[in-house]
Amino acid sequence: MELTSPLGLVAGAWYPPESQSVQDAVARGDIDAATARDLGYVSLPVSSAVAPPDMAMEAAREVLLRCGVRPEKLSLLLHASVHHQGHDAWSAPHYVAERLGAHAAVPIGLLQQCNGGAIGIETAAARLLADPEAGPALVTTADRFLMPSWDRWRSDYGMAAGDAATAVLVHRADGTHPAELLLHAIGTTVATELEVMHRGDDELNATPMGHSPVIDVRRTKRAFIKAYGVEWFTKTAHDRIRAAVDLCLRRAGLAPDDPRLRYAVIPRLGTKAMDEAYLPPLRESTSAELLDLGRATGHVGAGDLNASLADLAQGDRLAPGQYAVVLNGGGGFTFTAMAVSRP
């Protein structure tokens, strides 16, 4: 997305107090030692007590408090998630908006798999650019991955899932609200031909969780690899990731080796999966230092990119004038790169 002028971001994340260390997971037999090494996580946050929409509330309240935006001023509330939000045939985004007091915000749910939070920011930006009267937009993500429906260590290859919520306020950066980061450009690319990776050779059925009692992405990925091979995925992903980053940097007016470009922030997947799928194209597109912020959080569902924005917004990694390009991807597939800077 081409932005006519930078947008302001205020970003936060909420993590539960409980977590599981990788040593504990190996000792309990939740994961074998070799796979744990390949994943490279040190721990995963676990939200036994708080449901995802309430996790999102925690992140959202903190962000609104920090920037002084009253909830009733929000024009849009976009809530992205991957897994069960706590009820069926019900809207978590409406719940978040109601509980937050965002009574003028249009609540919209995003089922974009793991790139949902990033697409939420892109959609929020489009709303702000299209409607001059629209107030700030809030993008939340929240997921928890509990048994018996999701095995956080073993439901998928190449990642383990941590429970977390994120909130990112997107505004016009016209001085009305503080901006912890400026959003300069977004590059999103699409690879819907890889949709089959998360469906495998399963038929579409009529019952939720009808394919397996525990979400089993490994099964569909095995079917995908047997039918198409790993290389097709890797080649396609490399192509689209490179294109997303190149597009983002070009739109932001940043050269691949621009001295202002301090970091290239990577998704929160397992280390080996990132080394194979994400890092090679990213390295071709920029020489910025790689920044991995996910070793103690795991992959946080729809919120990897947004959680990394929160870390950049609140930490001191970026000095004023410094940029980061933040990369993410999600099943389906879409890949998004965002260029942000410290004002």
Binding site: A34, T35, D38, Y157, G158, R218, K221, R222, I225, K226, G229, V230, K272
Partner: peptide, 16 residues
């Protein structure tokens, strides 16, 4: 397979 650094995905490729 551990000594050959085969992960889960490599084992699938082996079976194919």
């Amino acid at each position: 397979f551990e000594s050959l650094e085969f992960d889960s995905l490599a084992l699938i490729e082996l079976s194919v």
